[in-house]
Design a protein around this nucleic acid. Structure first.
Lengths: 342, 342
DNA sequence: AATAAGTGAGAAAGCGTTTTCTCGGAGGGA
DNA sequence: TCCCTCCGAGAAAACGCTTTCTCACTTATT
């Protein structure tokens, strides 16, 4: 036996004893499963209420083979995008009586599989959010995790639902927006190397280049947060570009701040775009032109896809592959460039 | 019995059979508890590795009476402050092999106790973050939750550690800062009614009033997010004040944006302060003068306090009451007021 | 009136572990 | 050589619940 029996919590046995019935009957009335005599049921309920009995979820989980919990693993909990997904997921899941367990891989690629595995063992399913691992590893891991929902990645072999944003399309539209304003020299300030969404932006921009050979488009390596945007300020200025496509809103904001410090006006001197449309984007000065991804929907849809899998329990292998088109949100950080003087 | 036995996960029994030993022995080598013959141990380990055996955490939890999980309940997961606490907690807990389960009460006061109770039953402890419930209810709930850490609230009766920020002190220092710049007419844009930290600010400002009877200090009712700050713009302008103490950084940012839209310059025409120093605060335009709370420490310290309780298991009733003094962070959103013209 | 069918509650098995208890065998001292 | 002690491994109980199985009892059917 494990624990000392001293002052243990009130269990089903206590209720059974007080009500003068068996454990089984208590369980039945608590779960409303089988028919039980109304009189007895009332007695049990009274006893349960009096003892403030609350079923032990661990015991239930073991017996039922389910935990009513799902896990989510994100690369960086400091990123507002992932925070928003987490929030949407959590709220949607709570509506159906599920809780969410979080795991933050802190951008350590090698930890992802381990964290996901551990989460899966404790939960009824896992949402893998923008995993940085390689395709091969993901393909191998996915079946292991089975009730799995992927965000910003897809698998081919297994039938796992995925939600993704068409970053390639979005970045092209932003670039197009800058061009239509009259910009001819652009810079893409790229994101984390292992980020699939960054790769998608890159292929989108390749496409853009083909369609607009007359536009100069430089690539600058950056990161995914404020600081990396801020640090890129000088390189951006040195590039001589008038239109900047930042990897995301965070990077754009860091850049905005850096430009402001150096007295460079946005959008008069340089136009800046972000990506994601995080809640803060419309409150920056100037408000940020960006590509809005329906971030709140992502979380709740992730839950819906998860629920479908949990409920259908290996029934129909519906492999939903949802792809969201970003919507360009034109604000004040972009404008026609000043007349050239170089 | 619960589940169909078809295609169930590999359990301890499978390993035992493959290694030709008993369940007990497998458990022993997996946990390294008792002495077991090195040869047998090796055989067990080999079998476990070959079958990719991973102990079922639910079974372990039931036997061990612990889940290696803690819960956190927050009023609003959209608030960067709570996000940061969650993140700090999660990372610190992960370092000790613990996971965290989240519950978002969505500012619904009546849900808090229920969520906290459920979380507690599933976890080894609960972190209650800025609960909105009344003092009486909190006092009654706390012992129920026992391994409990309170953030931004305290209890008297029970010995529960609490971490709090001295909001009263911080708001006074901000007000003082505005006064020393020359402001004479201030407004406090208050936060959620049930927020204890808002009440602390109010008592701090009462104190401030006593010490500075010559200063006009109006109170305006607001909320805790962007939008409420934005919506207060006209009321702020109508107040005729030159120095605005916003409830927190979010409110301040909303206000900043509203003022900008109406062509009012910050800090030339109006000075604005925030509270919390969320990561975004130094990237607003102008960068926000605010009171920095050591938000990252809060999360990790919360974990430390939790760990102490879990480990000491009813040993020494160390009731740590940590209080953090905010540090005023002077940036560009505050300056001397323009000469009066009214 | 006797048998069949139905109903509802208790007994017990099972979920997957850990840990106590028990016991056979080996080793050491007398 | 015999007995006692020690050691290590298996048997089984325990954790707290759900659910099948079983069975006594009641009600319907002929």
């Amino acid at each position: 036996m494990a624990r000392r029996n001293t002052n243990r919590r009130v269990g089903i046995a206590d209720v059974a004893e007080k009500a003068g019935v068996s454990h089984a009957t208590v369980s039945r009335v608590m779960n409303g499963n089988a028919a039980v005599d109304p009189g007895i049921a009332a007695r049990v309920r009274a006893a349960a209420a009096e003892l403030k009995y609350q079923p032990n979820p661990v015991g239930r989980s073991l017996a039922l083979g389910k935990t009513d919990t799902i896990g989510i693993v994100v690369p960086d909990l400091a990123n507002p995008t992932f925070q928003a997904i987490l929030r949407g997921l959590s709220i949607a899941a709570a509506q159906d009586g599920y809780r969410v367990l979080i795991a933050d891989s802190s951008e350590v690629t090698s930890e992802e599989a381990i964290l996901a595995g551990e989460a899966r063992r404790r939960c009824d399913g896992v949402v893998l959010c923008a995993p940085r691992m390689g395709d091969a590893e993901l393909e191998e891991l996915a079946p292991t995790l089975h009730p799995l929902v992927l965000i910003n990645r897809t698998t081919i072999a297994t039938n796992t639902p995925s939600l993704s944003v068409d970053y390639g399309q979005g970045i092209q539209e932003l670039a197009q927006h800058l061009v239509s304003l009259g910009h001819r020299r652009l810079v893409f300030l790229s994101g984390p190397e292992h980020s699939a969404s960054n790769r998608q932006r890159l292929v989108g921009l390749d496409q853009f280049r083909k369609e607009h050979p007359e536009i100069e488009l430089q690539m600058l390596h950056g990161g995914s947060n404020f600081d990396s945007g801020h640090e890129s300020t000088d390189a951006i200025i040195a590039s001589g570009a008038t239109g900047i496509l930042a990897f995301n809103d965070l990077v754009a904001m860091g850049l905005l701040s850096g430009l402001h410090e150096r007295g460079i006006r946005v959008p008069e001197d340089i136009s800046v775009t972000g990506f994601d449309d995080i809640p803060f984007a419309k409150y920056t000065t100037p408000p940020l032109t960006t590509a809005a991804v329906p971030i709140n929907e992502l979380g709740s849809l992730a839950w819906r896809r998860m629920r479908e899998q949990i409920q259908q329990a290996g029934d129909a292998p519906v492999q939903a592959q949802d792809e969201f088109p970003p919507r360009v949100e034109i604000r004040k950080s972009t404008a026609a460039p000043a007349l050239k003087h170089a």
